[in-house]
Design a binder for these strands. Structure first.
Lengths: 266, 266
DNA sequence: CGCCGACTTGACACCAATCAAGATAAGTGG
DNA sequence: CCACTTATCTTGATTGGTGTCAAGTCGGCG
């Protein structure tokens, strides 16, 4: 659950990464932060020793090409991963053959936590990417001794859980246009994809992935883009770069009439 | 994420409660199990001392009436809860006023984990219920000393996370009929609601809650029931008891043609 | 230059929401 | 216990959003 968004109303209640504590809300949930001085920490909670231990079992893996499989659903889950650079998609295949993209993982996001020893989902690179790889068993062993590290992991999973809950609400209530608007807003908040000066958004996600993430078809996604453009909220400039003409317009769109009338029970 | 289901294909990949370890898949994720001999344990992983500590900070709270609020989204999150008896719904209100039911929590399920000190969702009783209540801060303090207990909590959250992922796929791919069929199948697996001898299912959930959980309107839910009845898969006997005529028929329904055609990328 | 994949647009069909009304069940007071 | 009220559930007719199928455009690359 990578994409973040800045609206602060109820529907849009965005889980804060450090959800379990009550600290400052600006830190991104992560086990590793290459840029900071404490590269293996979330919110500077880990001791030097703990960070060292994490570093020892981490291995940086490079995926130079888009569309490379990192792991597949049902496979033996030996590793957990943390995105270093690039974007990774987490997907699940229905037996109908219909794919669903559960999340786009951004730098700092953790993924691949096993379910009964197996991966529950598949994951592939969306663009060239580098990821840290940890032996899950080793990590578990360390966590058994280091409660603070385990709390970091718990925090991270709780964060992803809330993002999933938010996505459930979006998928079942918002129209396709609203979902797309929300997606763009979310993406704008991720460092490195939105150029504020020119108000241009870089969308390295193709229409397939986008549609499967937002629960619609590629055709509908294209139409949704067209409508946003007609209404003067965005301007397409190639299918992967978009100029944001009215961020407020996008925000208002998702507050408008939902797909279903409001429930007024009791 | 309470409801469980027994189909074992990919789409229906049901997370096992003890997902993080690799042990036997029969135990239900829980912190407390009143019925067992180890009432504060998941999968008998906790020591006597740890169980005692949990018991000390737990308080059993009774909610004799349906529709009682346990906590509200945005409120100060002092407690976490574990269902003892009855059903509790976890919901979120969009600013449009549209409610979404995120999950029905069954006996043994844990809920109310705070997000930045506040509750992210609301929760109300669906029927008369009893819940265990824990001071979150106390629980955190104990967990800091007892990694095994914290691992139990992590396991539980990871389990709910996977249920949320499954629900995302269902909401965005399945038709209303398929979603209802799946819901019934899930409910049948919960101990105490399905009478195998008469093949009768007790559904203590009203159409409002059901529709808001499955992402449809009450009218559509009623029509979906009608269609399942027309096709000879169920028989309605009052709106809250249902006779299952063909469990296999229900299972096949959700494998049929989905709402969208399959994605065949690459 | 021409092929090919990704993306877009159009015409049509269908599923599900809406609005409205009726039926059943559940309380409530006499 | 029965009439009355009310909530819950169901059914019908209509509309609109979105998937489907098909064709067309754009851009990249050999």
């Amino acid at each position: 659950m990578a994409v973040t968004c800045g609206v602060e109303n109820k529907m849009d209640f965005i889980p804060s990464p450090e959800s379990l504590s009550g600290s400052a809300p600006e830190i991104r949930a992560r086990l590793i932060d290459k840029t900071g001085e404490s590269p293996f920490d979330i919110g500077n909670l880990l001791s030097q020793k703990e960070q060292e231990e994490l570093r020892r079992i981490a291995k940086l893996v490079d995926y130079p090409r888009a569309g490379t499989t990192i792991f597949s659903a049902g496979g033996e889950a030996d590793f957990v991963y943390v995105v270093d650079t690039g974007i990774v998609r987490i997907s699940r295949l229905a037996e109908s053959g219909q794919r669903h993209v559960l999340a786009f993982m951004m730098p700092g996001d953790l993924f691949g936590i096993p379910d009964g020893g197996l991966y529950a989902n598949s994951s592939e690179t969306v663009c060239p990417a580098r990821v840290y790889r940890f032996y899950w068993q080793k990590l578990r062993r360390i966590m058994a001794k280091e409660p603070q590290l385990q709390l970091n992991l718990l925090t991270k999973v709780a964060y992803d859980f809330r993002r999933a809950q938010r996505q459930m609400v979006i998928l079942s209530q918002q129209t396709t246009y609203q979902r797309l608007a929300l997606f763009l807003l979310d993406f704008m908040r991720i460092p490195g994809f939105f150029d504020e000066r020119h108000s241009r958004l870089n969308l390295p996600v193709n229409r397939f992935d986008l549609a499967d993430y937002l629960g619609m078809t590629r055709e509908t996604a294209a139409r949704a883009f067209a409508r946003l453009e007609d209404e003067g909220l965005i301007r397409r400039d190639g299918s992967h770069t978009i100029e944001i003409l009215s961020m407020n317009g996008l925000k208002q769109l998702h507050r408008g009439r939902p797909r279903k009338r409001a429930t007024a029970q009791r």
